Simulated assay, not measured.
Amino acid sequence: MDPDDDLPPPDAAAALQLIRDQRGATARQLQPDARLLYWPWGVAWLVGFGLFFLRFSPDGRGLLRLPDWLPLTALFVLLVAAAAIQAVTGKRAYGQVTGDSSRRGRWYGCAWVLGSLSVFAVLGRVVDHLPYDQAALLWSATAVGLTGALQMAGGAIWLDRDLFRLGVWISVTNVIGTFAGPGWHALVLAVAGSGGILAAGAISWRRQRHPQ
């Protein structure tokens, strides 16, 4: 062990820089890798909604011959995998955090779970009375709308501009895709929606590596 490591900084500027370095190191230990929080969801949207567009294109014929069950199954499996990755990553980073931050996280997680269950319960009573393409649009547009709203709420809770902006982006793309109609909605989400999620992860990761 170098005895010089125990010596105090030679001047105030060096002391301030040392404090900043230690604060940054602590923040990096407590903050989960943004890529693991965002990119699995981006990949899930890209592949899942991409398969929906290929199988159920706007003309109703489909651009690629796929089993009808494959797009929804693939999307569901990928979303579950993304949620599991996010849960494990968050647990490792925030497992030792207590107090208000921990409570906000638990309540926010409950909002996601109960909000999703409420939406699915209501839609499950309605979609059987709609044509398949309209039912699929209602399912995806409502679920994505809830996602955008909760992301904006999360950004407001933690004053996270990146998360709030992503929620705005997803909400806007969802509205555009919904007005475009069945088939096109899946394409908009696969390209613009997933692109926004992947970009948000890259931006947040870069800021983690190079804090201001």
Rank of each mutant, 00 (worst) to 15 (best):
S102P: 01
L66K: 03
G60M: 12
L78I: 08
A149P: 02
L51V: 03
P67N: 09
A15Y: 13
L137E: 05
V97Y: 09
R207L: 07
S204F: 02
Q96W: 06
F49L: 14
G145I: 03
A143L: 14
L36T: 07
A84N: 07
Q96E: 14
R125T: 14
V191G: 03
I176G: 00
L163W: 12
G183T: 07
A84C: 11
I19M: 15
G167P: 02
T89H: 03
A153W: 08
L18K: 05
S118A: 15
Q212M: 13
Y108S: 04
T147V: 14
A136M: 14
L130G: 02
F120R: 09
R28A: 00
Q134V: 14
S101F: 15
L51A: 09
L146I: 09
L54D: 02
L123A: 03
V47S: 06
R103H: 10
S171N: 09
G201N: 00
A12P: 04
I197L: 08
G195P: 01
L64N: 10
A12E: 15
Q86V: 08
I19P: 03
L123V: 12
T26H: 09
R104E: 11
A156D: 09
G148A: 07
L79K: 04
D4N: 15
A153P: 00
Q22V: 15
V126R: 02
D128M: 10
A200N: 07
R23L: 14
S194G: 05
H210G: 00
N174S: 15
L72E: 11
I85M: 11
L51H: 05
A81L: 15
A202M: 11
Q31A: 15
A180F: 14
H185I: 06
F56W: 00
G145Q: 10
G90H: 06
H185L: 13
G62R: 02
G24H: 04
G109P: 05
R161C: 04
L130R: 01
R65A: 13
L198A: 12
T26D: 06
G50C: 11
Y132N: 03
